[in-house]
Design a protein around this nucleic acid. Structure first.
Length: 376
RNA sequence: GCGGAUGUAGCUCAGUUGGCAGAGCACCUGGUUGUGGCCCAGGGGGUCGUGGGUUCAAUCCCCAUCAUUCGCC
């Protein structure tokens, strides 16, 4: 698709710590900073690939854990990988299943060799080793594979977190060894952890960043901690990551979280917030977050967000969108998701333009002003 | 016309051996951060069909009446 080798990451401009860049993958380039819509089971919920193309999505997420359980990574592999199977020919990043080991924690056991877990679908028992997780993601033909990691809960004690960081490092190195071809078709990102201890965050970065990964993620944030703790650790950790590789803040976040991440030098984000909230009627606009179910919109004939040019905002009134949401119509899921994803992608596109213009600080301040409750 | 049943929140219904009236859903307001198409939290709302009677006290017991509904003629 491109002559530039996958894994090539070029930084074009810097504004403070914020970076403007391009990451090349086997399915084309990604402009950073970027937001990646989440499509856990190989589908961004409620929206089809042509919607995503119209929205301007450049890369989407899939999930190793979910796709392994159903329909099975080998079945997907026989159908052209996730790209062929899901009819999405742009880049795909797959999460490793490490987070599911955390969020479905009552169903799993962490062992040295990997994560033993029970399926949330049928209770069957499975073992995810670092090597197995790489193999699954190669079957899916993911453009960016994530290593298996251990995500610890907020409040996890120091001594356990120490052991967890060490385990996550050993798993990352095993993952790399299972697929040593750096900058090959399937890129491999390491995930730094360290819970809520700055020195352990530093240690995790030191242990991983000397090795040859295609990018580095910050995992384990936004798991219920107060905002200021998350922002403190973000500011501490992001600048420690290698400047010549993409940096990915996993599972984050709100518009304010994202511009805060960019301000600290993060290049990639993913979050279920725009799609999940869309299904529940919480919509992001240039004037802040609104709940479209509110009665005050029942006869509001104006567009959802006058500053937005998405299909939903061009076509429908707030009154109609409120009606669809109250009626539980499937179309509400789609129209709201189209809008929220457009907002998040416009947000990062605006950030890229601001970085290029050297005006990112002012841009971030404008976003924060629209979301007074979302910051620290 | 005769006999029975039922009338309690917007809806479907609990309930009180007579003592400040309840649930689910709906409605209103929050929340949702590497997604189990959800879930969680809070809130407003009732002359207990109507009119009498008994009682310290009636949504509850008695009488009448209206409405709905079933059966029989």
């Amino acid at each position: 698709m491109s002559d530039i080798p996958p894994g090539t990451f070029t930084v074009h401009a810097v504004d403070g710590k914020a970076r403007l860049g391009t990451l090349h993958t086997a399915h084309g380039p990604v402009q950073t900073p970027i937001f990646m819509p989440v499509g856990t089971v190989g589908s961004v919920k409620a929206v089809a690939p042509d919607d995503l193309a119209n929205i301007g999505a450049e890369i989407i997420l899939g999930n190793t854990y979910h796709l392994y359980l159903r329909p099975g990574d080998e079945l997907v592999g026989r159908r052209g990988g996730l790209h062929g199977f899901a009819a999405w020919d742009k880049p795909i990043l797959t999460d490793s299943g490490g987070f599911q080991a955390f969020s479905l924690s009552e169903l799993r056991k962490i062992r040295e060799n990997g994560v033993e877990f029970r399926s949330h679908l049928d209770g069957s028992k499975h073992l995810f080793t670092p090597e197995k997780v790489v193999e699954i993601q190669r079957n899916l033909n993911s453009d960016i594979m994530m290593v298996l990691d251990e995500c610890v809960a907020y409040g996890t004690p120091y001594d356990y977190t120490v052991k967890s960081v060490e385990l996550t490092t050993r798993w990352a190195l095993r993952s790399r060894a299972a697929y040593p071809e750096c900058s090959a078709g399937n890129l491999l990102f390491a995930i730094t952890q360290g819970g809520f201890f700055a020195d352990l965050r530093s240690r995790s970065v030191e242990q991983l960043c000397g090795h040859d990964f295609d990018g580095f993620a910050i995992g384990g944030l936004s798991v219920g901690e107060p905002k200021n703790e998350m922002y403190d650790l973000l500011a501490h950790t992001a600048p420690l990551l290698p400047a010549d590789k993409p940096r990915y803040l996993m599972g984050v976040g709100t518009p304010v979280d994202i511009v805060t991440g960019i301000a600290n030098g993060v290049d990639m984000f993913d979050c279920v917030l725009p799609t999940r909230n869309a299904r529940n009627g919480t919509l992001y606009t240039s004037q802040g977050k609104i709940n479209i179910k509110r009665k005050e919109y029942s006869e509001d004939d104006g567009p959802l967000d006058p500053a937005c040019s998405c299909y939903t905002c061009r076509t429908f009134s707030r009154a109609y969108l409120r009606h669809l949401q109250h009626s539980g119509e499937v179309s509400a899921f789609r129209l709201n998701s189209v809008h929220n994803l457009t907002y998040f992608l416009d947000l990062v596109r605006g950030a890229r333009e601001a970085i290029r213009a050297g005006e990112f600080a002012a841009y971030a301040a404008r976003v924060a002003a629209a979301y007074p409750d979302d910051g620290v």
